[in-house]
């Protein structure tokens, strides 16, 4: 972003990468897939790079409003300085925070999640599934991230991206508005779960395994970690693959991620 601004360019959209997708090795592949899609479709975009900082989502959910607002006000300062108008995020948590909680602190942007970006690109005819891996006839189940689904009522966009692949969408019993959380929200990602019978991600993966699926698709880096851990703890790595919708789209187009 800094380079573009220095050379007087204004990107169409800012890609807000998010912490998990910047640092977590597995999630970095989602980030590269999103970049691949943006480049493939010729979208003029920028990232903040090292100028990006945590949106403050985990701090806010954990009750630390001070820390959240410190983060938010600092980020808004950067975003407003670059006169950012439109943001795409690779994470439903960043998406929710930027879209719903930044306006109250002076940060007003058009914010979309990467599933919505992919849907827009499909609708505009800019994105097809060609030149890459075929998912025809593959059975895919989609795990709705809470902060995309229930929190912001985005259910169709990620499913639209799966439609493009010509794959079979097999829904879990608890899907869409009834989707079961992966167990990472509300800052749970950063702590051990309270004592109980079972971990939430295991409960969710068990449900996914009840469908006849080859792939569990997600649209959130936290869900990615939780679902993969669940698959591992059930020792099902050989029978199911966990992929982000961006990775699926990128693969279908032969894009590297």
């Amino acid at each position: 972003m800094a380079e573009m601004a220095a050379s007087g360019q204004t990107p169409e959209i800012l890609f807000w990468v998010g912490c998990a997708s910047s640092f977590d090795e597995r999630a970095q592949r989602i980030t590269r897939a999103i970049c691949g899609i943006l480049q493939h479709t010729g979208v003029n975009f920028a990232v903040l790079g090292t100028e990006e900082s945590c949106t403050g989502d985990p701090a806010k959910r954990a009750g630390n409003e001070f820390l959240f607002q410190m983060q938010a006000i600092a980020n808004i300062g950067v975003l407003n300085a670059y006169q950012v108008k439109k943001i795409v995020t690779g994470c439903p948590h960043c998406f929710n925070t930027l879209k719903n909680e930044y306006p109250g602190l002076g940060g007003n942007y058009e914010v979309i999640h990467h599933s919505q970006l992919i849907q827009q690109l499909i609708d505009e005819g800019k994105l097809r599934a060609e030149g890459g891996e075929s998912f025809k006839g593959k059975k895919i189940t989609f795990h709705d991230p809470c902060y995309l689904g229930r929190a912001n009522d985005v259910y169709e966009a990620p499913r639209k991206t799966l439609e493009l692949l010509d794959a079979d969408l097999v829904e879990m019993k608890r899907c869409r508005a009834n989707g079961l959380c992966c167990g990472a929200g509300g800052a749970q990602m950063f702590k051990e779960p309270e004592r109980g019978r079972k971990d939430i991600n295991v409960e969710r993966v068990e449900e996914a395994m009840q469908t006849q699926r080859d792939i569990i698709a997600t649209a959130c880096p936290f869900c990615m970690t939780m679902i993969r851990d669940g698959v591992k703890s059930l020792e099902k790595e050989d029978t199911v693959t966990v992929l982000d919708i961006a990775e699926l789209t990128a693969r279908a187009n032969g894009l590297k991620s």
Partner: peptide, 23 residues
């Protein structure tokens, strides 16, 4: 997590300078 966010701008203990390393 609070401490990391405050110091590194990320909830994990990664240096802020590595944020763009994915590229």
């Amino acid at each position: 997590m609070f401490g990391n966010t405050e110091n590194n701008g990320a909830p994990w203990k990664y240096p802020a300078s590595d944020r763009f390393a994915w590229a």
